[in-house]
Design a protein around this nucleic acid. Structure first.
Lengths: 290, 290
DNA sequence: TATTTAATGAAAGTTTTCATTCATTGGCGC
DNA sequence: GCGCCAATGAATGAAAACTTTCATTAAATA
Protein backbone atom coordinates (compact mmCIF):
# COMPACT_ATOMS: atom_id res chain seq x y z
CA UNK A 1 0.00 0.00 0.00
CA UNK A 2 0.99 3.53 -0.73
CA UNK A 3 4.72 3.35 -0.62
CA UNK A 4 5.00 6.98 -1.40
CA UNK A 5 3.00 7.95 1.59
CA UNK A 6 4.43 5.62 4.16
CA UNK A 7 8.13 5.44 3.49
CA UNK A 8 9.11 8.23 5.80
CA UNK A 9 6.75 7.04 8.44
CA UNK A 10 8.07 3.52 8.31
CA UNK A 11 11.65 4.62 8.43
CA UNK A 12 11.17 6.91 11.35
CA UNK A 13 9.11 4.83 13.65
CA UNK A 14 9.77 1.30 12.59
CA UNK A 15 7.52 -0.39 15.06
CA UNK A 16 4.38 1.50 14.19
CA UNK A 17 5.11 1.12 10.51
CA UNK A 18 5.55 -2.59 10.73
CA UNK A 19 2.47 -3.06 12.82
CA UNK A 20 0.35 -1.17 10.36
CA UNK A 21 1.92 -3.00 7.48
CA UNK A 22 1.30 -6.44 8.90
CA UNK A 23 -1.77 -5.38 10.81
CA UNK A 24 -4.11 -7.48 8.77
CA UNK A 25 -2.24 -10.69 9.42
CA UNK A 26 -1.99 -10.30 13.18
CA UNK A 27 -3.92 -12.61 15.43
CA UNK A 28 -6.25 -11.14 18.05
CA UNK A 29 -3.80 -11.76 20.82
CA UNK A 30 -0.98 -10.26 18.83
CA UNK A 31 -3.09 -7.20 18.23
CA UNK A 32 -3.41 -6.73 21.95
CA UNK A 33 0.35 -6.86 22.22
CA UNK A 34 0.78 -4.41 19.36
CA UNK A 35 -1.61 -1.95 20.92
CA UNK A 36 -0.02 -2.28 24.32
CA UNK A 37 3.44 -1.60 23.02
CA UNK A 38 2.35 1.39 20.98
CA UNK A 39 0.48 2.77 23.94
CA UNK A 40 3.53 2.42 26.13
CA UNK A 41 6.34 3.39 23.85
CA UNK A 42 8.17 4.95 26.75
CA UNK A 43 8.35 1.75 28.68
CA UNK A 44 8.62 -0.66 25.83
CA UNK A 45 12.40 -0.64 25.42
CA UNK A 46 12.80 -1.78 29.01
CA UNK A 47 10.28 -4.56 29.06
CA UNK A 48 11.24 -8.19 28.96
CA UNK A 49 9.15 -10.83 27.29
CA UNK A 50 7.85 -11.98 30.60
CA UNK A 51 6.69 -8.50 31.52
CA UNK A 52 4.97 -7.98 28.21
CA UNK A 53 3.23 -11.31 28.47
CA UNK A 54 2.05 -10.55 31.97
CA UNK A 55 0.71 -7.13 31.08
CA UNK A 56 -1.07 -8.23 27.97
CA UNK A 57 -2.28 -11.58 29.16
CA UNK A 58 -0.66 -13.36 26.25
CA UNK A 59 1.83 -16.15 26.69
CA UNK A 60 5.52 -15.57 26.19
CA UNK A 61 5.43 -17.65 23.05
CA UNK A 62 2.83 -15.38 21.54
CA UNK A 63 4.94 -12.35 22.24
CA UNK A 64 7.82 -13.87 20.35
CA UNK A 65 5.60 -14.87 17.49
CA UNK A 66 4.30 -11.34 17.30
CA UNK A 67 7.79 -9.95 16.95
CA UNK A 68 8.60 -12.45 14.25
CA UNK A 69 5.38 -11.85 12.38
CA UNK A 70 6.00 -8.17 11.98
CA UNK A 71 9.37 -8.89 10.54
CA UNK A 72 11.89 -8.87 13.34
CA UNK A 73 14.26 -11.70 13.95
CA UNK A 74 12.66 -12.27 17.32
CA UNK A 75 11.77 -10.31 20.40
CA UNK A 76 15.40 -9.47 20.87
CA UNK A 77 15.39 -7.85 17.46
CA UNK A 78 12.30 -5.86 18.24
CA UNK A 79 13.75 -4.65 21.49
CA UNK A 80 16.94 -3.59 19.82
CA UNK A 81 14.92 -1.56 17.36
CA UNK A 82 13.05 0.11 20.19
CA UNK A 83 16.28 0.91 21.94
CA UNK A 84 17.70 2.37 18.77
CA UNK A 85 14.62 4.50 18.28
CA UNK A 86 14.88 5.77 21.82
CA UNK A 87 18.54 6.60 21.41
CA UNK A 88 17.92 8.45 18.20
CA UNK A 89 15.15 10.43 19.74
CA UNK A 90 17.31 11.46 22.63
CA UNK A 91 20.20 12.17 20.35
CA UNK A 92 18.26 14.49 18.13
CA UNK A 93 17.11 16.19 21.27
CA UNK A 94 15.14 19.40 21.05
CA UNK A 95 16.22 20.00 17.52
CA UNK A 96 12.69 19.50 16.27
CA UNK A 97 12.59 21.75 13.27
CA UNK A 98 9.64 21.59 10.97
CA UNK A 99 7.80 19.18 13.18
CA UNK A 100 7.87 21.72 15.95
CA UNK A 101 5.66 24.00 13.96
CA UNK A 102 3.33 21.21 12.99
CA UNK A 103 3.37 19.48 16.30
CA UNK A 104 2.70 22.76 17.93
CA UNK A 105 -1.01 22.96 17.28
CA UNK A 106 -1.58 19.55 18.76
CA UNK A 107 0.47 20.28 21.82
CA UNK A 108 -1.08 23.67 22.32
CA UNK A 109 -4.64 22.47 21.98
CA UNK A 110 -3.94 19.50 24.20
CA UNK A 111 -2.59 21.69 26.93
CA UNK A 112 -5.47 24.06 26.59
CA UNK A 113 -7.92 21.21 26.95
CA UNK A 114 -6.07 19.87 29.96
CA UNK A 115 -6.17 23.28 31.52
CA UNK A 116 -9.88 23.65 30.97
CA UNK A 117 -10.64 20.24 32.36
CA UNK A 118 -8.56 20.93 35.41
CA UNK A 119 -10.14 24.30 35.96
CA UNK A 120 -13.58 22.83 35.55
CA UNK A 121 -12.88 20.10 38.01
CA UNK A 122 -11.76 22.68 40.50
CA UNK A 123 -14.64 25.06 40.03
CA UNK A 124 -17.73 22.97 39.51
CA UNK A 125 -19.80 22.93 42.60
CA UNK A 126 -20.35 19.42 43.78
CA UNK A 127 -23.81 19.92 45.15
CA UNK A 128 -24.94 21.77 42.08
CA UNK A 129 -23.65 18.99 39.91
CA UNK A 130 -25.46 16.47 42.02
CA UNK A 131 -28.64 18.50 41.88
CA UNK A 132 -28.50 18.69 38.11
CA UNK A 133 -28.02 14.95 37.87
CA UNK A 134 -31.05 14.46 40.10
CA UNK A 135 -33.23 16.76 38.10
CA UNK A 136 -32.30 15.27 34.76
CA UNK A 137 -32.72 11.74 36.02
CA UNK A 138 -36.10 12.58 37.47
CA UNK A 139 -37.45 14.48 34.50
CA UNK A 140 -40.37 13.09 32.64
CA UNK A 141 -38.94 14.06 29.33
CA UNK A 142 -35.74 15.87 28.54
CA UNK A 143 -35.06 18.44 25.83
CA UNK A 144 -31.58 19.56 24.93
CA UNK A 145 -30.79 22.71 23.08
CA UNK A 146 -27.92 24.74 21.71
CA UNK A 147 -26.89 26.86 18.77
CA UNK A 148 -23.64 26.92 16.84
CA UNK A 149 -21.10 24.66 18.39
CA UNK A 150 -23.50 24.18 21.26
CA UNK A 151 -25.86 22.44 18.90
CA UNK A 152 -23.37 19.62 18.65
CA UNK A 153 -23.19 19.44 22.39
CA UNK A 154 -26.95 19.31 22.58
CA UNK A 155 -27.08 16.49 20.08
CA UNK A 156 -24.31 14.67 21.86
CA UNK A 157 -26.08 15.04 25.18
CA UNK A 158 -29.28 13.69 23.66
CA UNK A 159 -27.41 10.74 22.28
CA UNK A 160 -25.69 9.92 25.52
CA UNK A 161 -28.78 10.26 27.66
CA UNK A 162 -30.85 8.23 25.25
CA UNK A 163 -28.37 5.42 25.50
CA UNK A 164 -28.96 5.41 29.22
CA UNK A 165 -32.66 5.03 28.97
CA UNK A 166 -33.85 8.60 29.26
CA UNK A 167 -36.47 10.03 26.96
CA UNK A 168 -34.72 12.83 25.18
CA UNK A 169 -35.14 15.13 22.25
CA UNK A 170 -32.65 17.55 20.88
CA UNK A 171 -34.39 20.73 19.80
CA UNK A 172 -33.21 21.49 16.32
CA UNK A 173 -33.60 24.34 13.96
CA UNK A 174 -34.08 22.02 11.08
CA UNK A 175 -37.77 22.40 10.35
CA UNK A 176 -39.32 24.67 12.85
CA UNK A 177 -37.98 27.06 15.41
CA UNK A 178 -36.99 25.48 18.67
CA UNK A 179 -39.55 27.51 20.52
CA UNK A 180 -42.36 26.03 18.48
CA UNK A 181 -41.17 22.59 19.46
CA UNK A 182 -41.66 23.54 23.05
CA UNK A 183 -45.41 23.14 22.70
CA UNK A 184 -44.84 19.58 23.72
CA UNK A 185 -43.24 20.73 26.93
CA UNK A 186 -45.01 20.06 30.20
CA UNK A 187 -44.36 20.54 33.86
CA UNK A 188 -42.14 17.75 35.05
CA UNK A 189 -40.01 17.94 31.95
CA UNK A 190 -36.54 19.40 31.89
CA UNK A 191 -34.56 21.47 29.42
CA UNK A 192 -30.80 21.29 29.21
CA UNK A 193 -29.31 24.17 27.25
CA UNK A 194 -25.76 24.91 26.22
CA UNK A 195 -24.80 28.53 26.03
CA UNK A 196 -21.34 29.44 24.90
CA UNK A 197 -20.07 32.61 23.30
CA UNK A 198 -21.27 34.08 21.14
CA UNK A 199 -24.37 33.90 23.29
CA UNK A 200 -27.55 33.97 21.30
CA UNK A 201 -30.78 35.63 22.23
CA UNK A 202 -32.69 32.63 21.01
CA UNK A 203 -31.23 30.43 23.70
CA UNK A 204 -32.38 32.83 26.36
CA UNK A 205 -35.86 32.88 24.95
CA UNK A 206 -36.07 29.13 24.87
CA UNK A 207 -35.03 28.95 28.49
CA UNK A 208 -37.45 31.66 29.52
CA UNK A 209 -40.35 30.00 27.79
CA UNK A 210 -39.43 26.59 29.11
CA UNK A 211 -39.51 27.93 32.60
CA UNK A 212 -42.82 29.60 32.15
CA UNK A 213 -44.23 26.30 31.09
CA UNK A 214 -43.12 24.78 34.34
CA UNK A 215 -40.16 22.78 33.21
CA UNK A 216 -36.91 22.54 35.10
CA UNK A 217 -34.22 24.47 33.29
CA UNK A 218 -30.51 23.80 33.33
CA UNK A 219 -27.78 25.58 31.45
CA UNK A 220 -24.21 24.60 30.82
CA UNK A 221 -22.19 27.70 30.17
CA UNK A 222 -18.72 29.09 30.42
CA UNK A 223 -19.00 31.71 33.11
CA UNK A 224 -21.07 32.47 36.11
CA UNK A 225 -22.05 35.83 34.72
CA UNK A 226 -23.33 34.53 31.42
CA UNK A 227 -26.74 35.92 30.58
CA UNK A 228 -28.47 32.59 30.79
CA UNK A 229 -27.48 31.88 34.35
CA UNK A 230 -30.02 34.17 35.91
CA UNK A 231 -32.85 32.59 33.99
CA UNK A 232 -32.47 29.00 34.99
CA UNK A 233 -32.93 26.70 37.93
CA UNK A 234 -29.46 25.24 37.74
CA UNK A 235 -26.30 26.30 36.02
CA UNK A 236 -23.08 24.39 35.52
CA UNK A 237 -20.12 26.61 34.83
CA UNK A 238 -17.47 24.96 32.76
CA UNK A 239 -14.06 26.38 31.94
CA UNK A 240 -13.94 27.02 28.21
CA UNK A 241 -11.04 29.36 27.73
CA UNK A 242 -9.70 29.89 24.30
CA UNK A 243 -13.01 29.29 22.62
CA UNK A 244 -12.79 32.43 20.58
CA UNK A 245 -10.05 31.05 18.39
CA UNK A 246 -10.47 27.33 18.78
CA UNK A 247 -13.38 25.11 19.66
CA UNK A 248 -12.23 22.54 22.13
CA UNK A 249 -15.20 21.48 24.14
CA UNK A 250 -13.25 18.80 25.91
CA UNK A 251 -14.24 20.07 29.34
CA UNK A 252 -17.91 20.01 28.46
CA UNK A 253 -17.52 16.56 27.04
CA UNK A 254 -16.17 15.53 30.40
CA UNK A 255 -18.98 17.13 32.33
CA UNK A 256 -21.54 15.54 30.07
CA UNK A 257 -20.12 12.10 30.48
CA UNK A 258 -19.86 12.57 34.20
CA UNK A 259 -23.51 13.54 34.27
CA UNK A 260 -24.42 10.42 32.38
CA UNK A 261 -22.49 8.38 34.84
CA UNK A 262 -24.05 10.13 37.80
CA UNK A 263 -27.49 9.56 36.39
CA UNK A 264 -26.77 5.95 35.77
CA UNK A 265 -25.89 5.88 39.40
CA UNK A 266 -29.40 4.70 40.04
CA UNK A 267 -27.78 1.43 39.48
CA UNK A 268 -25.12 2.49 41.92
CA UNK A 269 -23.04 -0.53 41.40
CA UNK A 270 -22.73 0.10 37.73
CA UNK A 271 -21.41 3.60 38.27
CA UNK A 272 -18.97 2.51 40.93
CA UNK A 273 -17.81 -0.25 38.71
CA UNK A 274 -17.13 2.27 35.97
CA UNK A 275 -15.20 4.50 38.31
CA UNK A 276 -13.08 1.68 39.55
CA UNK A 277 -12.26 0.64 36.04
CA UNK A 278 -11.22 4.17 35.23
CA UNK A 279 -8.96 4.11 38.21
CA UNK A 280 -7.45 0.87 37.06
CA UNK A 281 -6.61 2.45 33.76
CA UNK A 282 -5.10 5.45 35.46
CA UNK A 283 -3.10 3.35 37.87
CA UNK A 284 -1.19 2.52 34.86
CA UNK A 285 -1.78 -0.88 34.37
CA UNK A 286 -3.62 -1.41 31.45
CA UNK A 287 -3.35 -5.03 31.71
CA UNK A 288 -6.83 -4.69 30.43
CA UNK A 289 -6.35 -3.24 27.08
CA UNK A 290 -10.01 -2.47 27.16
CA UNK B 1 30.65 12.38 55.07
CA UNK B 2 28.44 15.29 54.20
CA UNK B 3 25.08 13.68 54.19
CA UNK B 4 23.30 16.94 53.86
CA UNK B 5 25.14 17.91 50.75
CA UNK B 6 24.77 14.69 48.93
CA UNK B 7 21.26 13.64 49.72
CA UNK B 8 19.55 15.50 46.95
CA UNK B 9 22.23 14.73 44.46
CA UNK B 10 22.29 11.11 45.38
CA UNK B 11 18.56 10.84 45.22
CA UNK B 12 18.30 12.48 41.85
CA UNK B 13 21.16 10.95 39.98
CA UNK B 14 22.21 8.05 42.07
CA UNK B 15 25.05 6.89 39.94
CA UNK B 16 27.06 10.07 39.90
CA UNK B 17 26.52 10.58 43.58
CA UNK B 18 27.70 7.15 44.52
CA UNK B 19 30.74 7.36 42.32
CA UNK B 20 31.81 10.60 43.88
CA UNK B 21 31.17 9.25 47.32
CA UNK B 22 33.21 6.10 46.86
CA UNK B 23 35.62 7.66 44.41
CA UNK B 24 38.60 7.31 46.69
CA UNK B 25 38.26 3.61 47.14
CA UNK B 26 37.91 2.75 43.47
CA UNK B 27 40.62 0.81 41.75
CA UNK B 28 42.16 2.09 38.51
CA UNK B 29 40.07 -0.19 36.32
CA UNK B 30 36.96 0.67 38.21
CA UNK B 31 37.71 4.30 37.65
CA UNK B 32 37.79 3.68 33.93
CA UNK B 33 34.42 2.02 34.17
CA UNK B 34 33.01 4.86 36.21
CA UNK B 35 34.20 7.43 33.73
CA UNK B 36 32.87 5.49 30.81
CA UNK B 37 29.43 5.11 32.29
CA UNK B 38 29.17 8.75 33.27
CA UNK B 39 30.27 9.75 29.79
CA UNK B 40 27.64 7.56 28.21
CA UNK B 41 24.67 7.98 30.45
CA UNK B 42 22.35 7.72 27.49
CA UNK B 43 23.58 4.31 26.55
CA UNK B 44 24.30 2.98 29.97
CA UNK B 45 20.86 1.63 30.80
CA UNK B 46 21.02 -0.64 27.79
CA UNK B 47 24.49 -2.05 28.20
CA UNK B 48 25.14 -5.55 29.47
CA UNK B 49 28.11 -6.45 31.60
CA UNK B 50 29.82 -7.96 28.61
CA UNK B 51 29.45 -4.79 26.59
CA UNK B 52 30.76 -2.63 29.38
CA UNK B 53 33.73 -4.88 29.86
CA UNK B 54 34.52 -4.85 26.16
CA UNK B 55 34.29 -1.09 25.88
CA UNK B 56 36.34 -0.39 28.95
CA UNK B 57 38.82 -3.19 28.62
CA UNK B 58 38.02 -4.45 32.07
CA UNK B 59 36.90 -7.95 32.76
CA UNK B 60 33.29 -8.77 33.54
CA UNK B 61 34.16 -9.58 37.09
CA UNK B 62 35.62 -6.13 37.56
CA UNK B 63 32.45 -4.53 36.30
CA UNK B 64 30.44 -6.42 38.84
CA UNK B 65 32.83 -5.53 41.59
CA UNK B 66 32.59 -1.91 40.59
CA UNK B 67 28.84 -1.93 40.94
CA UNK B 68 29.10 -3.55 44.33
CA UNK B 69 31.81 -1.22 45.47
CA UNK B 70 29.70 1.85 44.94
CA UNK B 71 26.91 0.36 46.89
CA UNK B 72 24.61 -1.45 44.54
CA UNK B 73 23.56 -5.00 45.07
CA UNK B 74 25.27 -5.92 41.84
CA UNK B 75 25.39 -4.82 38.25
CA UNK B 76 21.72 -5.66 37.90
CA UNK B 77 20.95 -3.22 40.67
CA UNK B 78 22.97 -0.51 39.03
CA UNK B 79 21.22 -1.03 35.74
CA UNK B 80 17.82 -0.90 37.32
CA UNK B 81 18.71 2.40 38.90
CA UNK B 82 19.79 3.76 35.55
CA UNK B 83 16.60 2.59 33.92
CA UNK B 84 14.52 4.22 36.60
CA UNK B 85 16.39 7.47 36.22
CA UNK B 86 15.79 7.46 32.50
CA UNK B 87 12.14 6.67 32.91
CA UNK B 88 11.64 9.42 35.42
CA UNK B 89 13.28 11.92 33.19
CA UNK B 90 11.08 11.01 30.28
CA UNK B 91 7.89 10.88 32.24
CA UNK B 92 8.47 14.25 33.79
CA UNK B 93 5.15 15.39 32.38
CA UNK B 94 3.45 13.62 35.18
CA UNK B 95 1.49 16.32 36.87
CA UNK B 96 -1.67 14.49 37.57
CA UNK B 97 -1.52 14.11 41.27
CA UNK B 98 -3.57 11.33 42.65
CA UNK B 99 -5.05 13.96 44.92
CA UNK B 100 -8.42 13.70 43.31
CA UNK B 101 -8.81 10.10 44.18
CA UNK B 102 -12.40 10.95 44.77
CA UNK B 103 -15.14 8.57 44.01
CA UNK B 104 -17.01 11.29 42.22
CA UNK B 105 -17.93 10.65 38.62
CA UNK B 106 -16.76 14.08 37.58
CA UNK B 107 -13.29 13.58 38.99
CA UNK B 108 -13.00 10.14 37.52
CA UNK B 109 -14.08 11.14 34.05
CA UNK B 110 -11.89 14.23 34.15
CA UNK B 111 -8.86 12.23 35.01
CA UNK B 112 -9.64 9.69 32.35
CA UNK B 113 -9.91 12.44 29.77
CA UNK B 114 -6.65 13.96 30.93
CA UNK B 115 -5.00 10.62 30.64
CA UNK B 116 -6.24 10.05 27.14
CA UNK B 117 -5.19 13.49 25.99
CA UNK B 118 -1.76 13.01 27.42
CA UNK B 119 -1.36 9.59 25.88
CA UNK B 120 -2.51 10.87 22.54
CA UNK B 121 -0.09 13.73 22.62
CA UNK B 122 2.72 11.31 23.31
CA UNK B 123 1.82 8.81 20.68
CA UNK B 124 0.53 10.69 17.68
CA UNK B 125 3.11 10.65 14.98
CA UNK B 126 4.06 14.16 13.95
CA UNK B 127 4.65 13.46 10.31
CA UNK B 128 1.44 11.55 9.98
CA UNK B 129 -0.47 14.38 11.59
CA UNK B 130 1.15 16.83 9.25
CA UNK B 131 0.37 14.65 6.25
CA UNK B 132 -3.27 14.45 7.24
CA UNK B 133 -3.50 18.20 7.61
CA UNK B 134 -1.99 18.61 4.18
CA UNK B 135 -4.34 16.18 2.55
CA UNK B 136 -7.43 17.61 4.11
CA UNK B 137 -6.42 21.15 3.30
CA UNK B 138 -5.67 20.24 -0.27
CA UNK B 139 -8.78 18.20 -0.93
CA UNK B 140 -11.24 19.40 -3.46
CA UNK B 141 -14.16 18.39 -1.33
CA UNK B 142 -14.21 16.66 2.02
CA UNK B 143 -16.60 14.05 3.34
CA UNK B 144 -16.74 13.03 6.96
CA UNK B 145 -18.25 9.83 8.20
CA UNK B 146 -18.90 7.88 11.36
CA UNK B 147 -21.49 5.69 13.04
CA UNK B 148 -22.71 5.69 16.60
CA UNK B 149 -20.79 8.11 18.72
CA UNK B 150 -18.48 8.61 15.79
CA UNK B 151 -21.35 10.17 13.89
CA UNK B 152 -21.21 13.07 16.27
CA UNK B 153 -17.52 13.41 15.69
CA UNK B 154 -18.10 13.36 11.96
CA UNK B 155 -20.69 16.10 12.26
CA UNK B 156 -18.48 18.10 14.54
CA UNK B 157 -15.57 17.78 12.14
CA UNK B 158 -17.76 18.92 9.26
CA UNK B 159 -18.86 21.91 11.28
CA UNK B 160 -15.35 22.90 12.29
CA UNK B 161 -13.88 22.52 8.83
CA UNK B 162 -16.74 24.38 7.24
CA UNK B 163 -16.08 27.29 9.52
CA UNK B 164 -12.57 27.38 8.17
CA UNK B 165 -13.57 27.60 4.58
CA UNK B 166 -13.39 23.99 3.47
CA UNK B 167 -16.14 22.41 1.44
CA UNK B 168 -17.40 19.62 3.60
CA UNK B 169 -20.25 17.20 3.87
CA UNK B 170 -21.00 14.82 6.65
CA UNK B 171 -22.27 11.54 5.26
CA UNK B 172 -25.39 10.71 7.17
CA UNK B 173 -27.68 7.78 7.35
CA UNK B 174 -30.66 10.02 7.39
CA UNK B 175 -32.10 9.48 3.94
CA UNK B 176 -29.90 7.20 1.97
CA UNK B 177 -27.04 4.94 2.81
CA UNK B 178 -23.70 6.66 3.09
CA UNK B 179 -22.31 4.61 0.29
CA UNK B 180 -24.95 5.89 -2.07
CA UNK B 181 -23.91 9.40 -1.23
CA UNK B 182 -20.45 8.57 -2.44
CA UNK B 183 -21.59 8.77 -6.05
CA UNK B 184 -20.60 12.40 -5.80
CA UNK B 185 -17.09 11.44 -4.83
CA UNK B 186 -14.30 12.18 -7.27
CA UNK B 187 -10.55 11.84 -7.38
CA UNK B 188 -9.07 14.76 -5.54
CA UNK B 189 -11.66 14.54 -2.81
CA UNK B 190 -10.94 13.24 0.65
CA UNK B 191 -12.87 11.16 3.17
CA UNK B 192 -12.34 11.50 6.89
CA UNK B 193 -13.82 8.60 8.85
CA UNK B 194 -14.07 7.96 12.55
CA UNK B 195 -13.89 4.38 13.63
CA UNK B 196 -14.24 3.55 17.29
CA UNK B 197 -15.39 0.36 18.95
CA UNK B 198 -17.69 -1.25 18.24
CA UNK B 199 -16.22 -1.12 14.77
CA UNK B 200 -18.80 -1.37 12.06
CA UNK B 201 -18.50 -3.10 8.76
CA UNK B 202 -20.21 -0.22 7.07
CA UNK B 203 -17.38 2.14 7.87
CA UNK B 204 -14.91 -0.20 6.27
CA UNK B 205 -17.02 -0.44 3.17
CA UNK B 206 -17.30 3.29 2.87
CA UNK B 207 -13.55 3.63 3.12
CA UNK B 208 -12.94 0.89 0.63
CA UNK B 209 -15.27 2.36 -1.88
CA UNK B 210 -13.93 5.86 -1.37
CA UNK B 211 -10.47 4.64 -2.09
CA UNK B 212 -11.52 2.80 -5.18
CA UNK B 213 -12.98 5.99 -6.45
CA UNK B 214 -9.64 7.67 -6.12
CA UNK B 215 -10.27 9.76 -3.05
CA UNK B 216 -7.75 10.20 -0.26
CA UNK B 217 -8.89 8.31 2.81
CA UNK B 218 -8.12 9.13 6.41
CA UNK B 219 -9.32 7.41 9.54
CA UNK B 220 -9.25 8.51 13.13
CA UNK B 221 -9.33 5.47 15.33
CA UNK B 222 -8.30 4.23 18.72
CA UNK B 223 -5.64 1.70 17.93
CA UNK B 224 -3.08 0.96 15.30
CA UNK B 225 -4.50 -2.46 14.72
CA UNK B 226 -8.04 -1.33 14.14
CA UNK B 227 -9.50 -2.90 11.03
CA UNK B 228 -9.79 0.39 9.18
CA UNK B 229 -6.13 1.25 9.41
CA UNK B 230 -5.02 -1.09 6.67
CA UNK B 231 -7.59 0.30 4.26
CA UNK B 232 -6.67 3.95 4.31
CA UNK B 233 -3.97 6.30 3.18
CA UNK B 234 -3.52 7.88 6.58
CA UNK B 235 -4.50 6.89 10.07
CA UNK B 236 -4.41 8.89 13.27
CA UNK B 237 -4.40 6.78 16.37
CA UNK B 238 -5.93 8.47 19.36
CA UNK B 239 -5.99 7.15 22.89
CA UNK B 240 -9.58 6.37 23.82
CA UNK B 241 -9.33 4.15 26.84
CA UNK B 242 -12.39 3.53 28.88
CA UNK B 243 -14.74 3.92 25.94
CA UNK B 244 -16.47 0.69 26.73
CA UNK B 245 -18.18 2.14 29.74
CA UNK B 246 -18.11 5.85 29.10
CA UNK B 247 -17.96 7.98 26.00
CA UNK B 248 -15.41 10.67 26.54
CA UNK B 249 -14.09 11.70 23.20
CA UNK B 250 -12.07 14.52 24.66
CA UNK B 251 -8.86 13.37 23.04
CA UNK B 252 -10.46 13.24 19.63
CA UNK B 253 -11.93 16.66 20.18
CA UNK B 254 -8.40 17.86 20.80
CA UNK B 255 -7.00 16.23 17.70
CA UNK B 256 -9.80 17.62 15.60
CA UNK B 257 -9.26 21.13 16.79
CA UNK B 258 -5.53 20.80 16.31
CA UNK B 259 -6.16 19.68 12.75
CA UNK B 260 -8.31 22.69 12.13
CA UNK B 261 -5.59 24.88 13.45
CA UNK B 262 -2.92 23.16 11.39
CA UNK B 263 -5.00 23.51 8.28
CA UNK B 264 -5.54 27.15 8.95
CA UNK B 265 -1.78 27.29 9.12
CA UNK B 266 -1.83 28.26 5.49
CA UNK B 267 -2.22 31.59 7.01
CA UNK B 268 0.71 30.77 9.24
CA UNK B 269 0.40 33.90 11.23
CA UNK B 270 -3.10 33.13 12.22
CA UNK B 271 -2.16 29.77 13.62
CA UNK B 272 0.83 31.09 15.45
CA UNK B 273 -1.28 33.83 16.88
CA UNK B 274 -3.72 31.26 18.17
CA UNK B 275 -0.95 29.24 19.74
CA UNK B 276 0.51 32.23 21.44
CA UNK B 277 -2.84 33.16 22.86
CA UNK B 278 -3.25 29.67 24.19
CA UNK B 279 0.11 30.00 25.83
CA UNK B 280 -0.93 33.26 27.39
CA UNK B 281 -3.93 31.57 28.90
CA UNK B 282 -1.83 28.77 30.22
CA UNK B 283 0.76 31.11 31.60
CA UNK B 284 -1.93 32.00 33.96
CA UNK B 285 -2.82 35.39 32.68
CA UNK B 286 -6.39 34.95 32.35
CA UNK B 287 -6.41 38.67 32.45
CA UNK B 288 -7.84 38.48 29.04
CA UNK B 289 -11.21 37.19 29.83
CA UNK B 290 -11.38 35.97 26.31
C1' DT C 1 -20.05 -33.28 9.68
C1' DA C 2 -15.33 -34.23 8.76
C1' DT C 3 -10.98 -32.15 7.71
C1' DT C 4 -7.75 -28.81 7.81
C1' DT C 5 -5.70 -24.77 9.35
C1' DA C 6 -4.47 -21.19 12.58
C1' DA C 7 -3.85 -19.75 17.26
C1' DT C 8 -2.35 -20.51 21.66
C1' DG C 9 -0.03 -21.88 26.13
C1' DA C 10 2.82 -25.20 28.61
C1' DA C 11 7.03 -26.85 28.83
C1' DA C 12 11.48 -27.92 27.31
C1' DG C 13 15.63 -26.12 25.22
C1' DT C 14 19.04 -22.50 24.15
C1' DT C 15 21.37 -18.36 24.68
C1' DT C 16 22.54 -14.39 27.21
C1' DT C 17 23.46 -12.13 31.31
C1' DC C 18 24.90 -11.76 35.84
C1' DA C 19 27.54 -13.25 40.05
C1' DT C 20 31.04 -15.96 42.38
C1' DT C 21 35.09 -18.51 42.93
C1' DC C 22 39.73 -19.17 42.29
C1' DA C 23 44.22 -18.73 40.55
C1' DT C 24 47.59 -15.25 38.82
C1' DT C 25 49.90 -10.93 38.77
C1' DG C 26 52.31 -7.10 40.58
C1' DG C 27 53.30 -3.83 44.09
C1' DC C 28 54.99 -2.96 48.80
C1' DG C 29 56.96 -3.49 53.34
C1' DC C 30 59.84 -6.39 56.13
C1' DG D 1 64.38 -12.48 48.91
C1' DC D 2 59.84 -13.44 51.17
C1' DG D 3 55.27 -12.95 52.33
C1' DC D 4 51.13 -10.17 52.17
C1' DC D 5 47.41 -8.01 49.88
C1' DA D 6 44.74 -5.62 46.56
C1' DA D 7 43.60 -6.00 41.73
C1' DT D 8 42.43 -8.54 37.99
C1' DG D 9 40.65 -11.95 34.62
C1' DA D 10 39.40 -16.70 33.42
C1' DA D 11 36.40 -20.10 34.52
C1' DT D 12 32.46 -21.76 36.52
C1' DG D 13 27.86 -21.61 38.29
C1' DA D 14 23.16 -19.69 38.63
C1' DA D 15 19.50 -17.07 36.96
C1' DA D 16 17.01 -14.73 33.74
C1' DA D 17 15.74 -13.93 29.08
C1' DC D 18 14.72 -15.63 24.85
C1' DT D 19 13.23 -19.29 21.42
C1' DT D 20 11.38 -23.50 19.90
C1' DT D 21 8.65 -27.61 20.09
C1' DC D 22 4.50 -29.87 20.84
C1' DA D 23 -0.10 -30.89 22.10
C1' DT D 24 -4.59 -28.73 22.59
C1' DT D 25 -8.25 -25.94 21.20
C1' DA D 26 -10.86 -23.04 18.34
C1' DA D 27 -12.02 -21.52 13.84
C1' DA D 28 -12.42 -22.01 8.99
C1' DT D 29 -13.30 -24.92 4.98
C1' DA D 30 -14.85 -28.55 2.28
Amino acid sequence: MKKQATTVEAAVSGLRGRIVEHGASLSPQQRVIADYLLAHLEEAPFLSILEVSERTGASEATVVRFAQRIGYKGYAGLKMALVEALREERGSGRRTTASAATQAPLAAVARLAQHNIEATLASVDGSEFEAVAQQLAGADHLFTFGLGISAHLADLAAYLFTEHGLRVNSLTTRYTSPREQLVALRPGDAVLAFSLPPYSRETLEVLREARERGATTVVVTDRATAPAVSLVDHALTVSCQGMTFTSTTAAIDVVLNALVMAIGAHHREEALEAISRINQILEGDSSLVD
